[in-house]
């Protein structure tokens, strides 16, 4: 009898403990999702003794109003543009000719040579809405498909190719599945998701 109640108490305590742990995990995950933008004076980068800091906008004020994300600035910038939450100018001078994706070009590029990871469907259109063609072509990438040399994850992690922006200002390279998002079709069957 005594033994059983001791066990029951132990089970109860374990359940209680796991509930507390689950709550703690939920709270910290929630905090991360809800955005954890540091005020400028507390970000470890800005000099808090600079009195002019009070005239600058803090990230939370602007970024909390934009579509959320779980990486980078915790803002989904592509969605922010698509949904009209931001309306950035495309040029300063009226006469600047801005190059955009040719309407004849397909909006996506499928990259199949990705070893055992899922293939990469590169959304060309979304990139060209932020960038000029010359930002990537012909410097980082050749325009003709299949002619860019050295395009691999090693170089990307060194800040070349996609890594010029992804990991610095666009979502980081730890988000593997956002790029490796296209299941490879398997012979004689439906696409197998990896």
């Amino acid at each position: 009898m005594g033994r059983t109640s001791r066990e029951q108490r132990r089970v109860k305590a374990a359940r209680c403990w796991s509930l507390v742990m689950a709550a703690a995990v939920a709270i910290s995950t929630g905090l991360a999702w809800a955005g954890n933008w540091k005020p400028l004076a507390q970000d470890g980068l800005h000099d808090p003794s600079n009195t002019a800091l009070s005239q600058l906008q803090n990230p939370a004020e602007a970024l909390s109003k934009l579509p959320p994300d779980t990486a980078g600035n915790q803002v989904n910038w592509v969605k922010a543009l698509e949904q009209g939450k931001i309306n950035p100018r495309t040029s300063i001078y009226a006469g600047t000719k801005v190059n955009e994706l040719d309407k004849k070009e397909p909006p996506d590029v499928l990259m199949k040579n990705t070893a055992e990871l899922s293939m990469v469907r590169f959304p060309h259109k979304q990139h060209s809405e932020f960038l000029d063609c010359s930002n990537c072509h012909e410097g980082l990438f050749k325009s003709k498909a299949g002619t860019t040399t050295g395009f691999n994850m090693f170089n990307i992690l060194q800040g070349e190719f996609c890594g010029r922006c992804h990991g610095a200002v666009a979502f980081p390279l730890t988000e593997c599945r956002r790029c490796h998002n296209e299941p490879r079709p398997v012979a004689g069957g439906a696409a197998k998701a990896r």
Binding site: A62, L63, W77, P88, S91, V98, F130, L131, D132, C165
Partner: peptide, 16 residues
């Protein structure tokens, strides 16, 4: 970067 990209596309600074 975050402050500027709300107001200007990447191409304004990195192209123009």
């Amino acid at each position: 970067h975050w402050f500027h990209r709300i107001r200007y596309n990447c191409k304004v600074c990195h192209y123009e």
